[in-house]
């Protein structure tokens, strides 16, 4: 029984092998077809013809809509295009505002830094003035002390 099973052909393997061979040959055939200049030329002409027909059909639909005094696709597209352009302008304005905001922030930082530096300079000046004032008081007191010492003698 086991021996007969071993001799029995494996149809799954056979069909897979057959499929692989068939796929390989078909791939080779397709490669030749779709890379050939004649095929590409024909496909190009086909695409151009289809696009031209599509454009003509669209134009005829718009013409018909115009004759019927109803808005056609072309009118709606024009309207939507205006909206798109307006949106683009708004986005550019947003760009400008953000750029200005960045510059203001930089200026603000610079101005703040300037104010801090000015305040520090004023504090430094005040300290120096205070020191000078103390020295003057000491100097002013010095002759009086000398007179007092002399009169006591």
């Amino acid at each position: 029984m086991a021996e007969s099973q071993e001799n029995f052909p494996d149809f799954t393997k056979m069909s897979n092998d057959f499929y692989k061979q068939w796929e390989q040959s078909m791939t080779q055939w397709w490669d030749q077809v779709i890379d050939s200049p004649a095929f590409l030329d024909a496909m190009g002409k086909n695409a151009a013809g289809y696009a031209k027909a599509r454009g003509s059909w669209q134009k005829s639909m718009d013409d018909m809509a115009e004759k019927m005094h109803v808005p056609g696709k072309g009118d709606l597209v024009r309207l939507a295009r205006i909206c798109t352009m307006l949106e683009e302008r708004l986005l550019r304005q947003e760009d400008h505002i953000l750029l200005l905001q960045d510059r203001l922030e930089t200026l603000e930082k610079e101005a703040l830094q300037g104010r801090i530096e000015a305040a520090e300079a004023r504090l430094e000046l005040r300290d120096r003035l205070q020191k000078m004032e103390d020295l003057l008081v000491k100097l002013a007191d010095a002759p009086a002390d000398a007179r007092r010492r002399k009169s006591a003698e």
């Binding site: 190009g44 151009a48 289809y50 696009a51 031209k52 454009g55």
Partner: peptide, 18 residues
């Protein structure tokens, strides 16, 4: 190979379809 000016009608396709 496909997208070459000899065989691909770029302008016709865009003019027709938008």
């Amino acid at each position: 190979l496909w997208a070459n000016p000899e065989t691909f009608p770029l302008d016709e396709v865009i003019d027709g379809h938008g």
